[in-house]
């Protein structure tokens, strides 16, 4: 389908002239309808995702009376005050900071673990490689261990501490070590030996070679785990009873449980939570797709 591009790529210049002309002619015929269909499809996809979100924005700007009178109607007199009220009542500022802390620390630690374990196992530098590979697979689908994790933290004196919560979330590495191990296979092994001959130690090699080279895979692993941490509700409920330590997911959930009657306010609260995320995402997204490239090449 990439054939629909009309500018010839460098590789094509060396193609036999006859073949190229034929190819170009065929393309020119295909370009128009294909492009239109493609754009139509993109519009449909974007619509499926944007419409529900715009509907939420529309709701956020309604007073409760307006909403119940006509939930689908376009907003006529925007209630910007909903946002201020939701912000004050929801205490979202503090929650967002908590969430950022948990997400960066837990996903960061989890990703580090995935690298520190995935690399040597993939290279076969350790005894019992089968055992470690099996461990990586098992990490994918461990049973829900909420009750016992609570008991564990309680006994370790880490209950109701941010550190305890971060450690539990970091240990939920999921697919991470497996992905890193897979990616490392695509890195030339000779590099390890060459670096070692040059006198590089193991740690220095990890930092100066493995991490930069495995960046795409590391980015993927980090993002996948960060999503899980950011969205967690139930572990935070149990492990962090102190409301001052609540992450934003829990704050919003509690807000929703308390203000069930007020859809405009709820929608506004939701938008408040979503806005910084969307902004952060728009800023980071080119790193994201770019970062993921190749992480599954291996």
């Amino acid at each position: 389908m990439t054939a629909t591009t009309s500018t010839p790529r460098p590789a094509e210049r060396d193609a036999p002239v006859a073949a190229r002309t034929a190819l170009d002619a065929r393309r020119r015929r295909l370009i128009r309808p294909g492009r239109i269909v493609n754009y139509a499809l993109v519009v449909i996809v974007v619509f499926c995702y944007l419409f529900p979100l715009l509907f939420l924005l529309n709701t956020a700007l309604k007073s409760n009376a307006d909403f119940f009178a006509n939930p689908v109607g376009l907003v006529t007199s925007p209630q910007w005050a909903n946002f201020g009220q939701a912000w004050v009542q929801g205490n979202f500022g503090a929650y967002i900071l908590n969430s950022v802390l948990y997400t960066i620390c837990a996903a960061g630690l989890g990703t580090a673990i995935a690298v520190l374990m995935g690399f040597p196992v993939s290279r076969g530098y350790l005894r019992w490689p089968r055992l470690w590979n099996a461990l990586f697979v098992v990490m994918l689908f461990l049973p829900n261990a909420l009750i016992t994790q609570f008991q564990l933290l309680l006994r370790m004196g880490l209950y109701n501490t941010q550190l305890g919560y971060i450690l539990i979330m970091a240990a939920g590495v999921g697919v991470g070590p497996l992905l890193i191990a897979g990616y490392v296979k695509s890195l030339p092994r000779e590099l390890d030996e060459a670096a070692a001959v040059d006198g590089s130690g193991y740690w220095r090699y990890l930092i100066t070679f493995v991490i930069p080279m495995a960046k795409p895979a590391i980015a993927t692993v980090f993002i996948l785990q960060a999503i899980g941490v950011w969205n967690d509700i139930i572990l935070a409920t149990i492990l962090l009873p102190d409301p001052a330590k609540s992450p934003i997911s829990l704050g919003l959930y509690a807000f929703q449980g308390t203000y069930t009657n007020d859809w405009g306010l709820l929608a506004a609260a939701t938008m408040i939570v979503a806005a910084p995320l969307v902004a952060a995402y728009l800023f980071l997204q080119r790193y994201l797709v770019g970062g993921v490239v190749g992480s599954v090449k291996g």
């Binding site: 997911s249 979503a274 995402y281």
Partner: peptide, 24 residues
């Protein structure tokens, strides 16, 4: 690029927000 971002949005918004949107 915009379309890619839009499709990825629900992942960031999380279950609570998604639940609210679709309940509405």
């Amino acid at each position: 690029t915009f379309a890619r971002a839009v499709v990825f949005l629900p992942t960031i918004l999380g279950v609570t927000v998604i639940g609210l949107i679709w309940s509405l």
